[in-house]
Structures are given as structure tokens and as C-alpha cells.
Design a protein around this nucleic acid. Structure first.
Lengths: 220, 220
DNA sequence: GACCAAATGAACCATCTGGTACATTTCAAT
DNA sequence: ATTGAAATGTACCAGATGGTTCATTTGGTC
């Protein structure tokens, strides 16, 4: 079947393996995540992803269709992951200020601990979020965080702890921005200010400032 | 000199033009900016840049060496541009709170009005800011903004308007984050929350919240 | 144990893309 | 007018890269 006879490989023309579709899928997804996060959609090389895999490039196309299909799969998997973490929070029992501080702290920590997620969101924004279109899961995820914030905020306003007039989205955007930026812009911040936002002490200090800022924003 | 005789072009084998090195340079830079901002470093196509140019691909390599050289040139030009705007501010005459509000407002507006700059910074961060290394101009630029903030902040602390204990960089990072995020993550915010941060009313409202948040952060 | 769809391997290809070779023209100094 | 360096046009290429073709194997089902 080989068109060429000059192969230097041994006589073996066939090979054995065990089937494991789900394992192969996960394995590809993991390798792809690393590559896309590091090099972006266009910068990532399919051959390089395949090389990092326990299987072959053939399998990438078999399971994911094309490069963009693989990218979308990686993106979805990352968004699904964050949801599971968020569910672990139980804020409805805490008083408003404590609840908000805990939520802000969690958001800050999640971003700091998951730079891959942050980079993926950056990359997706560069591409105008065109791969994030028709995913019901994502809508659900984010509606839920808004709901959590609304609950805390309304309790806080009712107790005259928070100033009225803000929208839950305002609060979420502020929290996200202050959590996202340190990670997303870490490289330019280091170059420009010679200040490493990834250093533990720096990060801890920044965390406190961010939480305090959120609370200051809410104060009457 | 043509190796092929099947050209369908007219007999003309030579052509006339006027020399204009600086114009050509600027023209290339402008076309490159558009392409890099839209597609990123790897995504941008040199042929496409050349096509948007009044001249040829040959000139790109003549003036900028290679694709990365061109990218660096675009990046530097954008950083230089923001400096000229910043100089226009005169904040030393204003009282601390007003000065800080004006600075925050300016920062917010500059980001909102220059999404190209924001995208370029995003792209550079994706690449770990490796093209931003040895530029003295950039260091100077950013040192100056820190100096401006320090001046305002120290006056505010001396007048017991601001709480002590913050660093100028803290304040700058907060201002930047709140100005950057709306623009950098506009695409995902729209997809996820069905909320367009680019709409004028939305932007104006957000601007006010951001300025208020900065002031709240500083308040004793 | 025959059979078939799902799963996998290995080589191959068409095209895109950054970069270059070479000839030619402009412009300023002499 | 001459000349040489800077500037420009045209065609071309080598390698990288996304994607495909074709054959083969596995595992379950009857």
C-alpha cells in the first residue's frame, strides 16, 4: 500500500492499539488547551497539538472536524469548568458586606489561579467573541452570577448598608475588571512598571485593595 | 528580464514614480496598524498589509526588515501617541478630588475612544510583551503618569481628603483596569450579558460609575 | 466466526505565506 | 552630464500548515 519503498522503518506495516474514544478526546482537548492558550487561535499549530497528544493529527480531525471546531471545544470546556467552582460558594447565609467581600475575593482568586482561562477570554475577545455565539450553557452560567449579586445587593440596600442606584451588572463588571486586569495585562505591567503582579506578596496586597474597593463602591 | 512571455499586461516594462520615503513609511505603518489590530501578530498577513498600501510588499521589508519589525514599529507608534494626549492634562492646579476625577475620566475616555490601542495592548500581552522590551520611551511615558498620580494623591492625603496607605501604582492599576476592561472584553460581555458597552448611554453611565468608584476608593 | 461501524495509523497534498533576487528608477552631489 | 546610493517594481520561491486519502484494526452483535 505504501507508494514509497524507501521507508527506513522496520518491516512492521500494521500496529496494535486499544480503543478509548473518550480518553483520546480528553487527551486531545488537554493538548489543544495548552497550545491555544499559549499561541492563540491562529498561532497554535495543529501539528504541534498533535505532537503533544498520545495519538495523531488524524484523530483531531476525526473528533473535532477542523481547527476551529477544536478551539470551540476547548473554549466551552473552560467555561464549564468555572461554573463548577462558582457553585461551591454559598453566600445567601452571609450578611451583605461579608457576602460581597467573599464573592469579590473568590473572583479575584479564581482569575489569579487560572491564567489560562483569562488568556482564553482575551483571545476570544480579539476574535470578537465569534466562537461564543450559540452556547446556552454560557448564558446560564452568567445569568446565575448576576442573580447571586442581585440577591446580596438588594439585601444590602434594604439594610441601608449599600447605596442604591447600582445595577448588579455594574458590580459584576467592576469586580471582573479588577480581577481580570492584573492577570491579562501582567506582561505589559511588568515591562512598563517593573512590577510583577504574579508575585505572591504583590498579589495578596492587590487582592485586599480590590476587595476594599468593591466595598467602598457600595458604601452609602 | 521577464522569464515569462505570457504576461497579459501592456508592453510597458518600466514605470515612473516619485520618491517619498517618509510618506511610504507612514502609509505602511497605517495599513499595518489596521491589520495587526484586527488580526493580531500571527493572524495579520503581510500580503494583505501590502495590498492596503499605496506601495508594495517589497517596501515593507525594505523599511521594516521583517514582519515583527513592522509590528514593533506599529506598537511603538501607538504608545507614543498616547503620551501626547496625556501631556495635554494640567492637573496640578486642581484640588485633589477634582484632579483625580479628571484624570480618571480622561483615562476612561481615552480607552473608550481608542479601541485600537486597547486591542494592541491585549495582543502584546498575549505575546507576553516580548516586543515591548528595550524601549526607553515607554518607561518614560509610564513613569510620568505615576508621578502625576503621586502628586495628586499626596496633596489629597495632606489635606486629609484621601486615606493614606495606597501607592500611586495601586491607583493607576485600578483606574486602568476599570477603563480597559469595558473595551477589551466588550465582545464577550455582549455575547454573555447581551449588553453593549460601546453604546453611548451605556458608556456614559459606566464612566460615571468608574469615576465614583475611584473616588470612593480614595475616600477616608 | 462473520460482519460492520467506529476508531486509528501513515503518508501525502494543495495552498498559503513570509521572505528574497534581480532589475530598474529617482535624486542629489559633483 | 556622470555617478552612486537610496528607493522602488516585478516576479518568484522554499517551507510551513491545515486538511485529506486510503488502508487497517478493534470491538460488539448476530
Amino acid at each position: 500500500m505504501d507508494k514509497t519503498e524507501i521507508s527506513t522503518r522496520p518491516e512492521r506495516k500494521t500496529q496494535s492499539w486499544t480503543q478509548d474514544p473518550e480518553g483520546v478526546r480528553r487527551n486531545i482537548l488537554e493538548a489543544a488547551r495548552i497550545e491555544f492558550v499559549e499561541h492563540g487561535l491562529r498561532g497554535a499549530r495543529v501539528d504541534e497539538i498533535a505532537a503533544k497528544t498520545a495519538t495523531s493529527k488524524r484523530m483531531i480531525y476525526y473528533y473535532f472536524g477542523d481547527k476551529e471546531g477544536l478551539y470551540r471545544a476547548v473554549l466551552e470546556a473552560m467555561y464549564e469548568r468555572i461554573r463548577s467552582f462558582e457553585r461551591g460558594l454559598d453566600l445567601s447565609a452571609l450578611p451583605p458586606r461579608e457576602a460581597m467581600a467573599k464573592l469579590a475575593g473568590f473572583t479575584f482568586d479564581y482569575h489569579a489561579e487560572n491564567p489560562d482561562f483569562v488568556r482564553m477570554v482575551m483571545i476570544e475577545n480579539i476574535h470578537h467573541a465569534r466562537h461564543l455565539s450559540s452556547s446556552a450553557k454560557i448564558a446560564e452560567l452568567n445569568l446565575s452570577i448576576i442573580g447571586v449579586i442581585r440577591d446580596i445587593y438588594e439585601r444590602g440596600v434594604a439594610q441601608r448598608l449599600f447605596r442604591p442606584g447600582l445595577s448588579p451588572l455594574d458590580i459584576h463588571l467592576t469586580t471582573s475588571a479588577l480581577s481580570f486586569y492584573n492577570v491579562s495585562n501582567r506582561a505589559t505591567i511588568r515591562q512598563v512598571f517593573d512590577h510583577d503582579m504574579g508575585a505572591p506578596e504583590v498579589l495578596a496586597r492587590r487582592r485586599q485593595t480590590v476587595v476594599e474597593t468593591i466595598l467602598a463602591m457600595l458604601r452609602r
